[in-house]
């Protein structure tokens, strides 16, 4: 019987192929990387369907937004206190006062927890960014069903 020579347990890793592989991998990932993360704010539009009289009415806040950043709130079909039913938040430097709007939405949600629907009515001069900011404020406060009314 042939007696085999004992082999050592140590082995070497070839570093050059490892580094080459890593470099190729890094190049591929750098080329295919998406650096800007784009998301979406979802809005539901009314498309045909039942007559308005047949649908169950739910608390809704209507927000009229103008080009100067002022937002007029009107709560409908809700039992919120009268002082919260119609309010106007003036814009600051042509932008909506988001802090005040967030506070107001929070107050409305406390008074009417079932309030999850908001309809934004921008006028023609309202800036797209401001509309999205107002929507974002609603979403962050749990008002998730949003709609935008066309002119």
């Amino acid at each position: 019987m042939a007696k085999g020579k004992k082999k050592g347990l140590d082995f070497t890793i070839e570093l050059i192929p490892v580094i080459s592989l890593m470099s190729v991998c890094i190049c591929f990932l750098l080329l295919t990387a998406v650096w800007i993360r784009i998301g979406s704010v979802n809005v539901k539009q009314a498309v045909g369907g039942q007559a308005a009289s047949e649908t169950q009415k739910k608390p809704t806040v209507w927000v009229a937004l103008d080009g100067k950043g002022s937002a007029s709130f009107e709560v409908r079909d809700s039992r919120v206190p009268a002082r919260l039913q119609r309010l106007k938040v003036q814009g600051v430097d042509g932008k909506p006062d988001l802090e005040k709007i967030k506070t107001l939405i929070g107050d409305l949600r406390t008074a009417e927890p079932a309030l999850i629907t908001a309809l934004i009515q921008p006028d023609g001069q309202a800036v797209y960014e401001h509309i999205i900011d107002v929507m974002d404020s609603f979403k962050k406060n749990g008002v998730i069903d949003l709609g935008v009314t066309p002119l």
Partner: peptide, 11 residues
Amino acid sequence: GFGDIKFAVLM
């Protein structure tokens, strides 16, 4: 008949 609109935003 497009009932859902997704406004593209930067996250």
